[in-house]
Design a protein around this nucleic acid. Sequence first.
DNA 1: GCTTAATTACTCGGATAGCAGGTGTCCGAGTTTATAGGG
DNA 2: CCCTATAAACTCGGACACCTGCTATCCGAGTAATTAAGC
Lengths: 163, 163
Amino acid sequence: MRMGEGVEWAAHACLLLSALPDGAGLPAAAIAAFHDVPPAYLAKHMQALARAGIVTSARGASGGYRLARAPEEINLLQIADAVDGGEPAFRCTEIRQRGPCAAKAEECMKACGIAAAFWAAERIYRQHLEGVRLADIRSALVRKQDSANMERLKAWLEAHANN
Amino acid sequence: MRMGEGVEWAAHACLLLSALPDGAGLPAAAIAAFHDVPPAYLAKHMQALARAGIVTSARGASGGYRLARAPEEINLLQIADAVDGGEPAFRCTEIRQRGPCAAKAEECMKACGIAAAFWAAERIYRQHLEGVRLADIRSALVRKQDSANMERLKAWLEAHANN
DNA sequence: GCTTAATTACTCGGATAGCAGGTGTCCGAGTTTATAGGG
DNA sequence: CCCTATAAACTCGGACACCTGCTATCCGAGTAATTAAGC
Ligand code: FES
Ligand code: FES
């Protein structure tokens, strides 16, 4: 099992956007520079976030990305689904219905026990991620953050943000 | 996020082996024929199970695979880790330590909040899978299984098992 | 000086190559069984 | 009839191509700011 690397980038991008002054926008190039990642590739994941309605995009000069709603209304599950594609990790090909001694269709009204177990585990996984809001991560970060760094971040945002 | 397709095959293979008479072995070709999957590919995953110590292999005529221990001592987490590789799905590249306004190493004694949340979710996921034993799946299956099919399965196993 | 229209600069968006890992297959190493020959 | 050596058949094990999907990048569409001209 392996999750796309862009999930980490997208999550940190949203975390950075949550520190933005209200009504301001931040270009994808600035976000990429802040995290030192390939700008074009991060832009691709930003598009995914925009398609999912997590961030809104403004084109043209003084454009950029901003959060579509309050950080309290954004959780890690939404970000992971948007970037990585929300399809289930475990793929059941109904192997029990194949082969010489297979179970017939009329006996498969209930899902296979193996698939049910995996999907139940995934359900719990997703519920846990859904419970972690972006605001929680941000508040926990600022709590243990040096005040000097906080000022440095704020200055950097003021210098690169538009509007 | 996407799990290897072979996990389903390996799980069902173990489930089939758990129905085997005690001390008998089943060749990989027979398991593949039973599930109607490419024999050579299933053999690859069987090797992974053998390397992980979940099944034991016997070469030569009348050889084959058998469970290494009782079905009560085998759970889905062991199978998934053996086939899919137990590495964490979420990959943290310590993005916070990079870029112009990065957090320095001395401030990163604790794991990043985002990575911590994802890894905690994975931990719960794995715990759930660890709680599902192969014996549980088998008992739940035989409970709702037709007795005629049970006999058919037993006859098939007798016909293809060695020793 | 003010209005307006063209120009410029900047941004997102989707379309396009490159590469890794999962998918699928093959043949050789090793063991057991069957067989044939000799005692 | 029994023992043994040979041959055969069968199985696992790792090494070899292929192919989907993630990784990485580019250029065009669209918008706001800028500028210059005209009134
Ligand atoms: S048939 Fe797909 S997991 Fe059992
Ligand atoms: S630095 Fe890797 S998730 Fe935050």
